[in-house]
Design a protein around this nucleic acid. Structure first.
Lengths: 332, 332
DNA sequence: AACGTTCCCGTGAACGCTCACGGACGGAAG
DNA sequence: CTTCCGTCCGTGAGCGTTCACGGGAACGTT
């Protein structure tokens, strides 16, 4: 068993010497591409096996530039929305024969910087979520194709898959209004300092429906965060009878908190989330949501990365849109 | 904007020429390691920027063999258990500064073979789930460190993180027996032809508790699969009052099917799963489960990969165990 | 004036592999 | 016998980067 603890790496040269042939013949044997006698091929393969030879991916990649790998950057793989985005991107990448390096930045700007610093030297393109400034991203990616996802309004230098939930949120609020709700609150994202884009859609929808502006609470990006935020919101505004959440995870937290405090959903409190994750079908009651086509979202991001990579006809901002539409279940 | 559609790649040489210096000086500027005048450094950096230069990861990797990357092979990232395993492995790998290539084999033996064929040339070690035979795995990995997870009893050539749920399942069945259940069924894994190891634990536990053997139904690895399997099981064996499921996903399906058919959980039907995924806390009622420490599981796999990689003191089979223990919530 | 230092910078070599070529050999065709 | 072709194999070059070394210029020291 050749383990090669500290010793030199086994190269194609060693195999050649052991088999009594040249490097090229070894290469022929391993990549089975003809021009080689079958007996010598077996001999080479045998030598390679006993020596424990394994070609260097770097040397190989250096000479034939065929394999493409893309970096996928995700804030939190355990957040079911990002799980689904990752799965979608993985699927799209596999269809292209790409390799995918996944980086979970743990919702931390620090970790994000860390990945930014190492990712450029490992991949041919980058896809995913970033919270840092575009100039900071550019500084580390340096001309590498980058596709951002859901980068709000400030995606200028990079391609970004824009998420357009305006109509969907409008439909959601409108549905709530028609159900008789007059005081609708929102559980917004907590990380950013300013209100989110989704909140802007929410506010617009409220005025469009002729409702006064709704109270808002910031929620951590977790079920727990949603629970806490809902209690806070309801504590401060007991007249609220419906809530719209920044995303489904938070909405599910709200659902749970509502039931735990004796409210019945949707009778006492209606809840609508955003994203449309599968998890929403498993909770009680099933969660209504302004839903995205997440598989398409991931596929779109990879598609654009591919176009940027080859250089031909990248999609324009108008094509890089994922629209969300209201998917009614039972929570509202 | 130098996009370089079909043209030659921009090399360090081009930058050197443009800046009027040597390759080495360019290298010094880019990896900022002193021995360079600040003004020339700026000049080089400027040249690199305008040329759109980006060092080749292959050339760099060839000469300084520092970056390590590991392949993580998962049957289905959307299955919450594997999501958590992946997240755990990602975290452990990041702590080591490793890069992780993720492959989702889509529960398909064909896709698994496909990854097997390409993965060896891309990573320094492989961690994850495989259904194919060890010889087949070995054929493609060729001496690459491989760490299998939950490979049942037949892990001989490779390191495998064994999942030991014997005591946990025993505790689960025992708990059900003490609650008065006499007829306990199981929803087993459907893919394999023979009954799973978990079923063996279940059967042993039944006899240990003095109960006759329980009826079994095979379930697809999904919530839907669990629903269908439970209906089948209950249709065939109406006297069953409790079920143990191969895993939590299936158990959640069972939970839903039970409630949908008017049964109350756990009063009319008790349900216990396996794995202990977080999702179990979100369903109604919260799922009891024979729970694994999934983060430790992932960390252990990566740890062993690291040891195999450096060659020193790999963990033995006795250390490569993840024990599962009963975690009671409300479904039983 | 000779010498040692410090600061920059450049030159060969090496990393491990594949590609493009060319050559040796044997047998079939002329 | 010559010519040709097909089969098999080896040699040089090159992929793009970093490492180890060496050297020149400028400055200060004795």
């Amino acid at each position: 068993m050749p383990t090669g603890t500290g010793s030199r790496r086994v190269t194609i040269h060693d195999v050649a010497r052991a088999a009594g042939v040249s490097r090229q013949t070894v290469s022929r044997a391993l990549n089975d591409k003809g021009e080689i006698d079958d007996s010598t091929k077996q001999r080479v393969l045998e030598a390679a096996r006993t020596l424990g030879y394994r070609p260097s991916r770097f040397a190989r990649g250096l000479v034939r530039q065929d394999t493409i790998s893309v970096g996928l950057v995700i804030p939190d793989l355990l957040n079911p929305f990002f799980t689904e985005v990752a799965a979608a991107a993985l699927e799209a990448a596999r269809a292209r024969g790409w390799h995918v390096l996944v980086y979970d930045t743990a919702d931390s700007a620090q970790e994000e910087l860390g990945t930014l610093q190492v990712i450029a030297s490992q991949v041919d393109a980058v896809v995913g979520y970033f919270s840092r400034s575009e100039s900071e991203i550019e500084q580390w990616t340096r001309g590498l194709p980058v596709v951002l996802i859901d980068r709000g309004e400030d995606a200028e230098r990079f391609s970004s898959i824009r998420i357009d939930g305006r109509d969907g949120v409008r439909a959601a609020v409108s549905h709530l209004a028609q159900a008789g709700h007059r005081r609708i609150g929102m559980l917004d994202h907590a990380a950013r300092t300013e209100p989110s884009v989704r909140h802007a859609w929410f506010a617009d929808a409220l005025t469009a429906c002729g409702l006064g502006d709704g109270p808002v609470c910031r929620a951590e990006q977790s079920v727990r965060g949603g629970e806490e935020a809902l209690e806070l919101l309801l504590g401060r505004h007991p007249d609220v009878t419906a809530v719209f959440a920044f995303n489904d995870v938070i909405a599910i937290g709200a659902l749970r908190a509502a039931r735990r405090t004796g409210r019945q959903v949707p009778r006492d409190l209606a809840v609508i989330g955003f994203d449309g994750v599968t998890l929403g079908t498993l909770v009680e009651p099933p969660l209504s949501s302004v839903a995205l086509d997440i598989r398409r979202l991931g596929a779109l991001a990879v598609e654009q990365a591919a176009r940027l990579l080859t250089g031909d006809s990248p999609l324009g901002p108008d094509d890089l849109v994922a629209r969300a539409e209201l998917r009614l279940r039972e929570s509202a």
